[in-house]
């Protein structure tokens, strides 16, 4: 048998014997006094705690100033710059944190323990304006439209809209005209590799001999004349190449006849997915892995995609050697390098 105390009033039947459809809101619960409200000693203690917290903040600020001057310049000893910076960062930061947290916790503790915590209630009014105001607003707009005469003068309406719609062209034209540089998107299709350009080490720029490249090694390559370009970084963003030597018997296919030299192959380093450098060479599987989205290319098989979100193989750079034994390009890539774009095959 469940032991009830008295039934709550929601269960008392109505005068006609029926129960209400839904329960009714019982109204505000009783207010609980805090310890600080009942006991003056507890109240005093809370006040002292708030004072202490604000004092912590002041101490923190003073400590910040002391640390700032006492710690001095971390660059005085370059060999210890890392630990000196770390010390400065730690002390300035900790003292700052205390200066702030002292104020924050002090204010909150004050509000929680000492300020009047009786819950109060405020009425909500409907958000919408009353019917009268809405009428008046509507009338005001209508009167305004009447006075302007715009409803009768259709041509004026069209003209004002037309003029307003057109004038942004005065800003947009020079902005858009200049913002895209020379707008020559055709440059995306070519790189600075030409017939005879020597392959050089990145970043030093020293040319590479075929005999330098051993089986299992990978060289990161730039055109030898990269620094002479007008915009070296822009050119580098298209021209970087990976040079890998495989055992010629392991090469299953390549993108063009005679494009490799004695097992040395050169492929574009720019991923055909969204353009990260495909830099990870796994020697044993001869796969190139891009660290950004894990597109994987098989160097021994025309660098075609074996996993990941890329679709196209890495473009191959046709190479050979010049009469001094240095590796040179036979020509530019035979297709645009890097990520796909709408007109890349045109």
């Amino acid at each position: 048998m469940s032991t009830h105390d008295t039934h709550s009033h929601e269960l008392e039947p109505h005068g006609d014997g029926t129960l209400p459809d839904r329960f009714e809101n019982p109204g505000h619960p009783e207010h609980h006094q805090r310890l600080g409200d009942l006991d003056p000693k507890a109240n005093k203690k809370a006040e002292r705690q708030v004072l202490a917290l604000f004092t912590v903040s002041v101490v923190g600020t003073i400590a910040f100033a002391v640390a700032y001057f006492a710690l001095g310049d971390p660059t005085t000893d370059p060999t210890k710059i890392a630990s000196a910076t770390r010390t400065e960062n730690l002390w300035l930061g900790l003292t700052l944190a205390f200066a702030l947290l002292g104020i924050g916790t002090g204010a909150v503790h004050w509000a929680k323990t000492l300020m009047n915590d009786h819950e109060m209630s405020e009425e909500r009014h409907a958000i919408a304006s009353d019917a009268e105001s809405r009428e008046a607003a509507l009338q005001a707009l209508q009167d305004g439209a009447e006075d302007s005469g715009i409803s009768r003068r259709g041509a004026l309406k069209g003209a004002v809209i037309g003029a307003l719609a057109l004038f942004p062209i005065t800003i947009a034209l020079p902005l858009i005209g200049n913002i895209g540089g020379d707008w020559n998107v055709g440059k995306l299709k070519h790189t600075m590799w030409k017939k005879g350009t020597r392959l050089a080490r990145d970043p030093s720029g020293r040319a590479i001999k075929a005999s330098d490249v051993t089986i299992g090694s990978v060289f990161h390559v730039i055109p030898e004349n990269l620094e002479e370009a007008e915009h070296p970084l822009d050119e580098k963003a298209k021209a970087v190449v990976l040079l890998i030597r495989l055992d010629p018997r392991d090469i299953k296919s390549e993108q063009g006849e005679g494009w490799s030299y004695d097992g040395i192959v050169a492929y574009s380093k720019i991923c055909t997915h969204v353009g990260c450098p495909v830099a990870l060479y796994e020697q044993q599987t001869h796969h190139l892995l891009c660290p950004c989205h894990q597109s994987t290319f098989d160097v021994a098989d025309s660098a075609k995609v074996v996993f990941g979100p890329a679709k196209r193989a890495l473009p191959q750079l046709p190479i050979t050697i010049d009469d001094e034994g240095y590796l040179i390009a036979q020509s530019d890539f035979h297709e645009p390098v890097g990520p796909s774009f709408w007109e890349r095959k045109k």
Binding site: V213, T214, S217, F219, Y281
Partner: peptide, 9 residues
Amino acid sequence: SMPVFSDTN
């Protein structure tokens, strides 16, 4: 898996 970084590389 690590590539060979010979002394010429």
